[in-house]
Simulated assay, not measured.
Amino acid sequence: MRKNIFLIVLLLLISGRTVAQSVTVEAQIDSLQILIGEQAKIQLQVAMDAKQRAVFPIYSDTLVRGVEIVEIAKPDTQYLNDRQRMLITQEYTVTSFDSALYYLPPMSVMVDNKEYKSKSLALKVYSMPVDTLHPDQFFGQKTVMKAPFVWKDWYGVIACSLLVFPLLALLVYLIIRIRDNKPIIRKVKVEPKLPPHQLAMREIERIKGEKIWQKGHSKEYYTELTDAIRTYIRDRFGFNALEMTSSEIIDKLLEIKDKEAVSDLKYLFQTADLVKFAKHDPQMNENDANLINAIDFINETKLAEEENKKPQPTEITVIEKRSLRVKLLLIGGIVCISIALIGAFVYIGLQLYNLFV
């Protein structure tokens, strides 16, 4: 019993593989009979596995002698059976100008270097029936009809014509700019730098307004506060406090100022170090006190002559020569606009020629 089941499963697998790998080639024609000059469409379909590759026949201009190929459409691919199989359709449009019954031989397709052929087809071409008993029904050649005026035919010409004028104006402007090699004179308004104590107080007001420590970010609060004080010390006393430790800053200040002015600042730096390195959680009054200590230190150490000083902005004149980059940009703009104008004129000329000739 088990042997029979095994044989049945094996046969099913082999048959399923054979079906999956089968290739079929079919050819169909939509009309078996046409008049001279009419067209018929031939569809060549190939069904195969998705992993296989097909090469369709290549024709020049005739399918067989007397049957001409008008157009070869792009192949259309459809996937079947969960993309395991695919169906490729190639369409050929043919016509004939000689009445006869044409035999269309099988069309061969190469699938993985193996040739498969379709069935043969037939095409009957009839000539136009002529009633020779009533010659009065034949009419001569009609005169050439004048095409009616349609605005749609002029849209492209009008759009290009409207585009030409601003492009010409821009081209003239760029040419004038590149020929005018005079230096560029600009007036620059220079805003003066605020005194150190004003900059520090502005930064402290910002920190105070954002209420960083009230949101639970004590480390960020003390980092920004001490950075503001370090920047003030650098600008006020002339040594780089941003690159020094807290103890080094205090020692340096003690050489310059009295101990009373530095004592409150020392407490601020000690608290900041505890918060940043020892995960100290300061209380609300401690944070407020350190903020006040920073303000008091700035007020006690600021220069008296700068307290009410209001610096005025100054205006300077900058004379620059046109850079090579600007010249290259101007030349590139001139070239691009010139090409666009030439293309527009060619297009307008061709459109007018087609409309009037």
Rank of each mutant, 00 (worst) to 15 (best):
Q283C: 01
A47H: 12
K219A: 09
K187G: 11
F297W: 06
Y126T: 08
I316N: 09
F356A: 02
T62P: 05
L170G: 03
V335S: 06
T132V: 05
N285V: 04
A122Q: 13
V164A: 05
E191N: 12
T93V: 07
E248I: 00
Y92P: 07
V70W: 10
S96E: 00
P313F: 12
K114D: 11
K321W: 03
A169W: 07
A100R: 12
E320A: 14
R186A: 13
H134S: 14
F269Y: 10
Q43G: 00
A289S: 15
Q78V: 08
E255A: 14
T95Y: 05
F239K: 07
K187A: 03
Q214G: 01
I158T: 13
P75V: 04
I212N: 03
D76E: 09
I34N: 08
V346R: 14
I348K: 03
F97T: 05
I185H: 07
K279E: 07
Q45S: 06
T226K: 02
H197T: 10
V19E: 04
I337S: 08
K114S: 12
L303K: 15
V19I: 10
S96K: 09
D136W: 02
A200F: 01
I14H: 06
E320H: 02
A20S: 14
D61Y: 08
I316L: 12
I158D: 11
A241Q: 05
L7H: 04
V346E: 06
Q351V: 06
E255F: 15
G156W: 07
V144T: 13
C336Q: 04
S247T: 13
K208A: 03
A294Y: 03
